[in-house]
Design a protein around this nucleic acid. Structure first.
Lengths: 147, 147
DNA sequence: TTACGTGCAAAGTCTTTGCAACCAT
DNA sequence: ATGGTTGCAAAGACTTTGCACGTAA
């Protein structure tokens, strides 16, 4: 994918133009987020250990906070534990988390446009889709309980 | 409100019928959840201190977990910190959390029926509405940024 | 009476912070 | 050169757990 090149250039500039520095740690974290998708800070740290000598966990947290603030990555809370991070560019979907079996599905952006539209119309509220997680019961678990 | 009586009776039985005991601590916690609405475990603990000699924080956690499991209360994550609890019976709304100013609005259940409907139709997924929190930017913050 | 429930304290998980050394610009 | 960044270690916020005592049923 020649795609990686393009993106590299763009976030480099995004950082520098705002006065932040481009460091190897930040590159590694961003790569890990892209590669793993839906990874927790710990998982990102573990992933980065394999590649380089490692990035300190507190640097991971600081970097994720920065990238999140810049809109390069986004996070969502899929369970009671740590949040998971993903690239903002691949944020065009919503997570459906089953509270019975824990399975995580994805729903397309179109599925929720009625919601975003309604909230905009009725509350003037602009939904952050990449941060949206919907809890409930999945198809399989509903069948089992037979209800 | 003669309403309180009714509810008292019903959750009493709900507990007993499932083999759990009705204790003063559980009553106090449930009352606090009802009175505070959207309260964190710490806030519930603080509220209960005023009334009685106090309920230990670990009992608060254990009680909330129990009541949540029984479907008497529900929780949602309004921010990065502790979750907030509310009565399951007053769960007929969704929270809109502004990521700029932190303001929390509520949207009626009707506003999101298109979503729940779509997820049911397309994924067979049953949405847990009382657990749903939508992040984004509120009307005021959008105006300020003038966009 | 007899488990279930509670308080207490200790431990666990996840995250933030202070500070000296470091390095991208 | 110089101020943003990092690593490290300690502290913090939030939650869970083990165990002896207390109490609802």
């Amino acid at each position: 994918m020649e795609h990686g090149q393009e993106q590299s250039r763009s976030w480099d500039q995004e950082l520098r133009s705002r006065g932040y520095r481009v460091t190897p740690q930040r590159q590694l974290v961003l790569e890990a987020v892209a590669a793993l998708d839906h990874a927790t800070p710990e998982e990102i740290a573990a992933s980065v250990q394999r590649t380089a000598k490692g990035v300190n966990i507190s640097t991971i947290y600081r970097t994720l906070e920065l990238l999140d603030g810049l809109g390069l990555v986004a996070h969502t809370h899929l369970n009671h534990g740590a949040p998971t991070y993903h690239l903002a560019t691949e944020a065009g979907h919503v997570h459906l988390v089953c509270q019975d079996c824990g399975k995580i599905e994805e729903a397309s952006r179109e599925t929720i446009t009625p919601l975003t539209q309604a909230l905009d119309d009725r509350h003037g509220f602009e939904v952050n889709v990449s941060h949206l997680t919907v809890f409930g019961r999945c198809h399989d678990c509903r069948s089992k309980t037979d209800e």
